[in-house]
Design a protein around this nucleic acid. Sequence first.
DNA 1: ATGTAAAGTGATAATTGTTATCAGTTTTGT
DNA 2: ACAAAACTGATAACAATTATCACTTTACAT
Lengths: 127, 127
Amino acid sequence: MNYSKQREIIYKTLADNVVHPSAEYIYEILKKADSKISLATVYRNLNKMASCGHIKKIEGLEDRAHFDHNTFEHYHFICEKCGKIYDIAKEVAPDIIKKTQDKTGFTINSHDIVFHGICLECKKEER
Amino acid sequence: MNYSKQREIIYKTLADNVVHPSAEYIYEILKKADSKISLATVYRNLNKMASCGHIKKIEGLEDRAHFDHNTFEHYHFICEKCGKIYDIAKEVAPDIIKKTQDKTGFTINSHDIVFHGICLECKKEER
DNA sequence: ATGTAAAGTGATAATTGTTATCAGTTTTGT
DNA sequence: ACAAAACTGATAACAATTATCACTTTACAT
């Protein structure tokens, strides 16, 4: 994989963002600064970085994919009210890979956990 | 929600199937028997049944959604080689909801776990 | 049993997120 | 500095899903 200026910008935009943006969202941010980038380039590079493990692709949240520069093993929570995505520590499912491999005999290469519910902020507002 | 003959047929087709079919797959099966059903009807009813908890919608597997008549809490594994979807027992992640709620203060309404890897059969073939 | 409002249907157009294409540009190693 | 490989922007194409709409079914009060 060669160096590319666009890929660097995309990665920085992803890393500097507290949220877990979609490709479209990154594209919107970049259009304001580097007004020449193409949406296809954003998709291409996010996928390329995801498949080489440099970033993480989060699927099964909404209808669109989201991306995460945090490649540490961790899970995600999406608030059904505000739509915000939060990180969940891996400790909530200890030894899950080993347990699953032992039980099934399958080889587990990756796993994802997605929680749905109401976040603290939205719970406060409800009262 | 009113009764509908189509919904009943769709549910039965889902329940009689060992696999975890997609909407398209159910549509194909039904076209052979009841040749009049519409793909839109299949989507409509699968989503309706999923959102009232009668069946389960599995997302984040491939690009399409799959459906499961087994509403018992359990997880899924998709084989990266043959594409087959397997059920995984909930015991691999004990007390995950309680742990996550305690740690975050969020209310968890649902959660999904998807494993990716190689199933036993495909592992045998590799050698 | 009948009338009517609500819910459901088939057919298909529209939408949406994503990927493919392709001519031109950038990067890389020699 | 040069050729091969990788990358890009612009946009067409694609695939899964949803919206639309005229019509049919269902439920239930009379």
